[in-house]
């Protein structure tokens, strides 16, 4: 609790409040009492090594993975009995690890599915906004999503999530498997979303990039949050530098 409290932004409404969260895969425990908060309009990064539990935490927040102890509150409401598909309606939208677009379906169908929970008017409006934000998707809207390049698929995965009008956007490893130039582009998009005041919880192995754009950050190690501070402070932290930044 202490680490998380110290790091929380004072005075802002918490959009997401995770406390004492544990998750098991069968008998193997993956998360051990995770505490963290994300406030309205904040960009919070979670960094950590492969297998530290980053994706598991996101899957538990989005509801794909059941929690075995602890609570997740979204805008004050306990999510324990809310199924994953209903969390989307409430505004928790996840961009999954590895993009996971619906490959055989067209780009536009992918976007429309992203807005599955929205009204027809919002779908059309969302398409216009996404095509304006990502012109390459407009050009390729009739192509099968699986034929796009990795970077374009990542843009599509983000656009698909934005179609749902998230109140909290969960981004899982958006830079994974992308060339450096494309990573730049993805983080440019993240910065842009932040300027639109979308609340973002970003999970990344690329600690330097993630902490550079984040308001605050947490460090996760073997299923436990070990550090929590502002983005710049974590970037300057000797422990973080040694373990994740290769300084």
């Amino acid at each position: 609790m202490s680490v998380a409290t110290a790091a929380s932004a004072n005075g802002k409404t918490p959009v997401l409040e995770v406390s004492g969260l544990c998750t098991h895969y069968g008998r193997i425990q993956a998360l051990f009492g995770i505490d963290l908060q994300v406030a309205q309009g904040e960009l919070v990064a979670l960094v950590g090594a492969n297998g530290a539990g980053k994706t598991t935490l996101l899957r538990t927040i989005s509801g794909l993975q059941p929690a075995s102890a602890g609570t997740i509150r979204f805008l004050g409401e306990d999510l324990a009995s809310v199924a994953a598909e209903r969390r989307v309606r409430k505004g928790i939208v996840q961009v999954p690890e590895g993009r996971q677009v619906f490959g055989p379906m067209s780009v536009e169908d992918n976007l429309r599915l992203g807005a599955y929970t929205r009204s027809p008017g919002e779908v059309e409006d969302g398409l216009q906004r996404m095509y304006a934000m990502f012109p390459v998707l407009k050009e390729r809207r009739r192509l099968a999503a699986g034929t796009l390049s990795g970077g374009q698929q990542q843009m599509l995965a983000i656009a698909r999530a934005l179609m749902a009008r998230p109140r909290l956007l969960l981004l899982d490893e958006p830079s994974m498997g992308l060339a450096p130039l494309l990573i730049e582009e993805v983080f440019e998009t993240v910065r842009m979303l932040r300027e639109e005041l979308i609340t973002i919880f970003l999970v990344e192995q690329n600690a330097h990039k993630a902490l550079s754009v984040a308001d605050r950050g947490y460090v996760i190690e073997t299923g436990r949050i070990v550090l929590g501070d502002s983005g710049p402070a974590l970037l300057g932290n000797a422990q973080v530098q040694a373990a994740y930044l290769g300084v």
């Binding site: 598909e85 996840q94 999954p96 996971q100 055989p104 429309r112 599915l113 599955y116």
Partner: peptide
């Protein structure tokens, strides 16, 4: 829309749930 949601579920049911589809 629902027909496409069923197709999406057949490609990847976890991701379909992330779209808000009741699989």
């Amino acid at each position: 829309r629902f027909g496409k949601a069923i197709l999406a579920t057949s490609y990847n049911s976890d991701i379909a749930r992330l779209m808000g589809i009741n699989v």
